[in-house]
Write a protein that binds this DNA or RNA. Structure first.
Lengths: 215, 215, 215, 215
DNA sequence: AATGAATGAGGGTTCATTCAT
DNA sequence: TATGAATGAACCCTCATTCAT
């Protein structure tokens, strides 16, 4: 019987690896059934362990959600493109492509949903605060792009909301192992978003075979 | 004390009106806390009635979710633009704008999330089947737009997924009573989506002040 | 099957009566097995109802303990002898006799034990505060008795501790329906305590057949 | 870090000393939180060892309680005054003083409470049987005192119950390191009890400054 | 139609106990 | 001897659902 999804290695790293496997399994379950719809038993079963064993790694269910959220945000933040030699639109495009790929890739922690009553205020605040860091980075790229005349004028936050919608939705429909590769999807969505925001006259924006910009 | 959100009228329509109020209240709760995170008590409280009274109007909680889903899909389908004199891109734009406005308007039934274990297979199949009608209509518009050379070639379903992401996400961030009107948001998202899909050379696409296409 | 120990009467008082029956049953269980050793199921079973039904009457187990404690202290306070025409020693005697009889009588709520971790600090403070009212009344009687030369000089609190020991211990050994009546026990303990505290030369103190002062 | 409360000595006695330290620590915990309210982890922590290590010294939690009870009773029995040259009242007084001092002294094993469901019948019987030895000794002293005309006539068992109440209660209120010494408390309680039982005309009975018989 | 009362089912959490190391 | 890891059993508590009124 496969335990811990075989994420078991040498002594010291063991616990860390197990935690990661736990977070990923939990993220998957939360994504599928929501926080309240997920029983700890489901997660334990997915890992081939018993329910009480989970309590060696997390304090309680809420804390597990919190940890998963934090891991997800950290993953999101790690996809931000910091290459200052690029214009805002291109930085946005690369970030989105990279972010999407991390979301649907193997090691994804991403949870999109945040049921309102699922976290106590303090932890909720922290999650929102971290999430804001990621969103602010996107807003900043949009503002740069607008200043450069590459992105349509208007509310930068509105632009980011649109972008995040197209992006986050991917977890709802993407099925790994299908005809569309992770990379194609990431590049495709990034292209879609950037075309949606680009000012008129900006040249063709890179996409993927799923939505061909140079037909 | 306001009961049934004052949706009470003359004899025969009474039940229908109450059902509608119930579905809207349920939709709001499900949207906020998910299916499993919503207690029937929450819904009853929101309507100013008691928990057992709900059972005069719905068979059980699952059935309530089913009814809300069906109402939501019907609402979505009702926003489809059937004007065959228009090209695919414009029909898509009008449909999206209209759909978004219905989602964030007062009488919204929309639930975006479908927790996988929340409906029994038979009802799930029906909901998915109805939802497919709406999505197929969108796919058909994209195909028409591609045939007309107005929409980029590629996977029409991929295009629709992107569109739906930007669209459905609106329930996560829109706050009624803020600076952005329902109409501005609807037109803005529709413009964003259509620019994201439009083939090069297609003229400026209508948006709103939130993202100005003709800056 | 006997439900609610037949403590069921007319409409409005119903809930109050049920609460009382619940508190008495809970007190009995806590006395026997301690707080942590008592399962809510035990209490429910003793009342002929099911476990979740308890939650119509108390918020949770801790709150139940708190309510029982408060009822017990109120009962204790109600036995205090306020007859100011009496000397301190006699007031003490009457109070103790009355208190003991209330503890082992039918409607007793008394819990003697307070496991330290069983109540959250706020509720613990309140219980202790109320209990102090009762103990202070006893201390005051002792001080009066000492001033009157009827009680030995020394630490009044020490005297009260001794008295309370003899008194509270009664719940550990008294078996209703045995050879010793409630009244005999109450008077007997009261006499024992008062003789233990009385100054030399104080005349014979009333007791009971269980320990005859006038042999 | 202090382990085993430094009760560690040479090879052979090691196990015995550790067991004693364990019993005392367990007694303390049981006294504070009751049997069911005490987690083995609490005891282990108090000894600076880990939970499974306890199982090298006791078979299981119930057995630990049993051992502690037996140690406590043995301690109680060891305080019995066997000096046959003394009258019953004085023997009782010395025994009680000595017993109280052993209860609140450093090496105390005393558990006063016996939650009914905490021991299986066989072990319970043995504990009760041992306890009876101690109580019988007290009863015998009372009978002797009554025969000698020094103790009030009446039920000897009732007299002993009163005595044990005042005595056992001491664990509930005594705080080491306070203003009252162990000896003062022991002598004070013994005096209180014996005055409570003494026949009229018996001369002054020794106490302590806490309750002065010769004021 | 409406609801207070009741409960079976289910989920989160703790903990005594075992085992491999 | 000592312990981190694991788990079955038991308990508190919630909630959808039913029923009598």
């Amino acid at each position: 019987m496969a335990r811990w999804n075989n994420a078991v290695a040498s002594a010291a790293e063991l616990k860390k690896l197990r935690e990661d496997a736990l977070y990923r399994e939990a993220a998957k379950a939360f994504r599928k059934n929501g926080y309240h719809g997920t029983a700890l038993e489901d997660i334990a079963e997915g890992l081939g362990i018993s329910k009480p064993t989970l309590y060696h790694y997390v304090k309680n269910k809420r804390d597990l959600l919190y940890q998963v959220h934090m891991a997800a945000v950290a993953q999101a933040i790690s996809t931000i493109c910091h290459d200052t030699s690029l214009n805002g639109l291109e930085r946005l495009r690369r970030t989105i492509s990279s972010y999407v790929q991390s979301m649907i890739g193997d090691g994804s922690y991403s949870i999109v949903i945040l049921e309102e009553k699922s976290l106590p205020p303090i932890q909720l605040t922290r999650v929102v605060h971290e999430r804001d860091k990621f969103e602010s980075a996107l807003v900043e790229m949009v503002l740069q792009g607008q200043a450069e005349g590459l992105i349509l004028p208007g509310e930068a936050r509105f632009a980011v909301f649109n972008a995040l919608g197209a992006v986050n939705w991917v977890t709802k429909w993407y099925r790994p192992g299908g005809q569309w590769t992770v990379e194609e999807v990431g590049e495709g969505i990034a292209g879609f978003v950037c075309r949606g925001l680009a000012a008129p006259g900006v040249g063709p924006i890179q996409g993927s075979r799923l939505l061909t910009p140079t037909a």
